[in-house]
C-alpha cells in the first residue's frame, strides 16, 4: 500500500511550470509514488480538482484529477491519475473563468473544449486508458495536460482584457 505525501505547491514564475514535462514510464515505482503524492496534495488543498507534477516541482507528464464534488461537472470519472496524457479529440469550445493554485492572485477567461477524449496511461500497471468526458471534467483535464506541457492558463487567456486580479475576500 502506497501512502501519498503532501507536497508543496509551487507558484509562478517558477521555471518548472513553464517547461514541458518529460514522458515517464508509468510502471516506475517513483512515478507510482508521485501519483499518490499528487492525490494526497490535491486532497488537502481546499477546492482543488486537479494537480499536475510540475506544480509540485517535478517536470514530468503526470497529473491527477477529481471533479466528483464540482457542481459544473457532468460526466465524472472520480479520482484518477494519468501519465503521458494527450488529447485525442476536442470540440465545442466554451469560455469560462478559471484559476490555478500555482497562479493564486489571478484568474482568466479561457476557451476550452467541452467535449473531450484523452488518452494516457495508468500509473502502476501502465495500462492504456481512454477517457471520454465533457463539461467541467473536460476543462480540468485540458488544464492539467497543459501543465504537463509547460503551459499555464495565462498562455490561453481569451483576450487582453480577460485577465483579472483575484479579489481579497474580507
Amino acid at each position: 500500500m502506497i501512502v501519498g505525501k503532501v507536497l508543496e505547491v509551487v507558484r509562478a514564475p517558477a521555471q518548472v511550470l513553464s517547461k514541458p514535462g518529460a514522458v515517464v514510464d508509468p510502471t516506475d515505482p517513483e512515478i507510482v509514488q508521485l501519483a499518490a503524492d499528487l492525490v494526497a496534495t490535491m486532497r488537502v488543498s481546499p477546492g482543488c480538482v486537479g494537480l499536475a507534477a510540475p506544480q509540485v516541482g517535478v517536470s514530468v507528464k503526470v497529473f491527477c484529477v477529481d471533479v466528483s464534488e464540482h457542481p459544473k461537472a457532468r460526466t465524472k470519472h472520480g479520482t484518477f491519475v494519468l501519465c503521458n496524457a494527450e488529447v485525442v479529440s476536442a470540440s465545442r469550445n466554451e469560455k469560462a473563468r478559471e484559476g490555478c493554485m500555482s497562479v493564486p492572485d489571478l484568474t482568466g477567461d479561457v476557451k476550452r473544449a467541452s467535449r473531450l477524449v484523452v488518452r494516457g496511461q495508468e500509473p502502476g500497471t501502465g495500462a492504456e486508458v481512454v477517457i471520454e468526458t465533457d463539461a467541467f471534467e473536460a476543462r480540468a483535464l485540458q488544464h492539467e495536460i497543459d501543465h504537463c506541457d509547460g503551459l499555464l492558463f495565462l498562455d490561453r487567456v481569451a483576450d487582453a482584457h480577460a485577465l483579472h486580479a483575484r479579489k481579497t475576500y474580507l
Binding site: 477546492g47 478559471e98 480540468a140
Partner: peptide, 12 residues
C-alpha cells in the same frame, strides 16, 4: 435590455 448573471471562476 439588461441581464445580470453570476460570475464564477473555477479553481483547477
Amino acid at each position: 435590455d439588461v441581464t445580470l448573471r453570476v460570475l464564477e471562476s473555477d479553481d483547477l
